[in-house]
Amino acid sequence: MASDSPPPTAEEIAYHDCLKKQGVAIVYTDYGAPRVDKSKPWNEEAHKACEPLLPPPAKPQPADPAQVTAAQKESACLRAEGVSWYPDPDPVTAQIDERRGTPEQWTALKRDHIDALKKCRPER
């Protein structure tokens, strides 16, 4: 399957190899990039141990104003629907920082707030 995603970097591979040695379940994308298996419990000790190997984040790409506005409306809508912890998007990139919120909160969002997600993300 073709992908526009670049192949994994040596840093990504080293970081995920470290996590794997620490007992973290790793899955691979269609284009071979290693990722943490989010269906498994979070292992804070492993992530802290491997943090020095974590590659620097990619430089964020600015979103157009319509995307920023849509992301802001989505965040406000989800909070109004009872997801009080849901963060505001980045005002430049429109991205949600998933470090704001625990892995348990993100899992619960997808499990317990399906109706809110459908209401607040009608185009998805």
Rank of each mutant, 00 (worst) to 15 (best):
D115Y: 01
A116C: 09
E45G: 13
K20E: 14
P57G: 11
D64E: 14
D88I: 00
K73D: 06
A94Q: 00
K59L: 07
D90M: 05
S3C: 13
E45N: 12
I13W: 00
P103I: 02
P52F: 04
P56E: 06
G82V: 00
P103Y: 04
K119Y: 01
S75P: 09
S5H: 11
A70M: 03
Q95L: 13
V24R: 05
A25E: 11
E74C: 07
Q95S: 11
S75Y: 04
I13S: 09
E123C: 03
C50P: 10
P56K: 15
T9H: 07
P103E: 03
V68L: 09
D90L: 04
E123L: 10
I96L: 08
A94E: 00
D112W: 05
A2K: 05
P55Q: 04
A58P: 12
T9R: 08
L109C: 11
A71V: 00
K110M: 12
V24E: 01
Q67W: 00
A108R: 14
T93I: 00
H47F: 14
P34L: 05
D30Q: 12
E45M: 12
G82C: 01
E98K: 15
P65K: 10
A10S: 14
W106L: 10
K40T: 12
D4L: 13
A33E: 06
E123K: 15
A46H: 08
K38G: 12
T102F: 05
C50K: 05
P60A: 08
P56Y: 04
P34I: 03
P89K: 02
I96N: 01
Q67M: 13
Y28W: 10
R35K: 14
P7D: 07
K40F: 04
A33Q: 09
Q105R: 11
K59P: 12
C50R: 08
Y28C: 08
R111A: 13
C77Y: 00
G23H: 09
P56N: 04
T69I: 04
T69S: 15
P8V: 03
T9V: 02
P57R: 12
E51C: 04
C77P: 09
P60G: 11
M1H: 14
W106I: 06
E123S: 15
A46N: 05
Q105F: 02
A63N: 03
K110W: 02
A76N: 06
P122R: 04
L117E: 02
I114W: 02
Q61G: 09
H47R: 15
K38T: 12
V36I: 15
S3N: 08
D88G: 08
E45S: 15
P7Y: 02
N43L: 14
D64Y: 03
R79Y: 01
I114A: 13
P103H: 06
V68D: 01
V92E: 07
P122N: 08
L109I: 02
E12D: 13
C120K: 03
L78Q: 02
P55L: 03
Q61A: 14
E51A: 15
K21I: 01
P57I: 06
V36S: 12
L53E: 05
W106R: 15
E104L: 12
K118G: 01
P89R: 01
Q67L: 11
G32V: 07
R100I: 02
S39P: 07
